[in-house]
Design a protein around this nucleic acid. Structure first.
Lengths: 132, 132
DNA sequence: CTCCAAATATTACATACGTAATATTACACT
DNA sequence: AGTGTAATATTACGTATGTAATATTTGGAG
């Protein structure tokens, strides 16, 4: 279910803008990306069109231009990309992946505490499950 | 530093074989992949050649065939892919990424405990750093 | 109703990738 | 030394991607 299309690296930039706020005109998308990426507006419009063709986004007419909005949720796409990455690089082993990230990344005290807490809770849940 | 070449999804499969054991002949690589992937041996040899061109692997002659070995380490490549993924999907926010994985993935009790322990240690380390 | 400017749509082109087929080279055997 | 076979090298071809340029359409001004 929920078969998300393959979204390329550049297309992800477009999607992130549209997910963060929609609907948006092409003009607005170009604007939002203008300081982050060095893309001509035609390039951005090409990516928008490819995303339309892939059914990742839709549009409705509004006067002279279109208003674009997502057809696939960010959550779905993040899931798909994560699974793909996990499989390709870590043979699907999420535990190893997370371990690796924890060891390679310099997290802040806050983040460490937060993750620690999540795991503490998860541990308790798991325990309850076993108990029952 | 340590500029790793871009390795495609298919090429990753070849690299994983070569990293796990090297040097290997093309024949041996084909064999190791034969049950996992539905690739003709010519396809595998094409990927091997592309990896050679990218300087991801090297070879030395051995009788009638070549023995291939990695020129880039798995660690480097995992790092590069991880950074790329992190940037594309989570805007580089490792904390959010890990949180997301912890919440979306069903980890075993063992894995949870292990991660919990790593974080407990990291927390202590961080604390010591602050203390000084 | 006509015409322009702006928006969308189509076309372009080089490189990467998936997936091989064919061509060439070079051991090993006779 | 010649030859066949197995390895490597080259070529092929369709789709995807990055990066636009050009062509066409159309809403809005006059």
């Amino acid at each position: 279910m929920s078969n998300v299309p393959k979204i390329s690296e550049s297309e992800w930039e477009i999607m992130k803008v549209i997910w963060s706020q929609s609907p948006l005109t092409a003009e607005q998308i170009v604007l939002q990306l203008s300081d982050k990426m060095e893309w001509s507006d035609q390039t951005v419009r090409t990516f928008i069109n490819r995303l339309l063709k892939k059914k990742a986004i839709g549009f409705e007419k509004s006067g002279r231009s279109y208003l674009y909005f997502p057809l696939v949720s960010e959550k779905e796409c993040v899931r798909a990309e994560s699974q793909s990455f996990l499989k390709r690089v870590f043979n699907g082993a999420a535990g190893i992946m997370v371990t690796n990230f924890l060891e390679e990344t310099d997290l802040s005290q806050q983040e460490i505490d937060h993750l620690h807490q999540i795991l503490t809770e998860k541990r308790r849940e798991k325990d309850k499950g076993t108990q029952a």
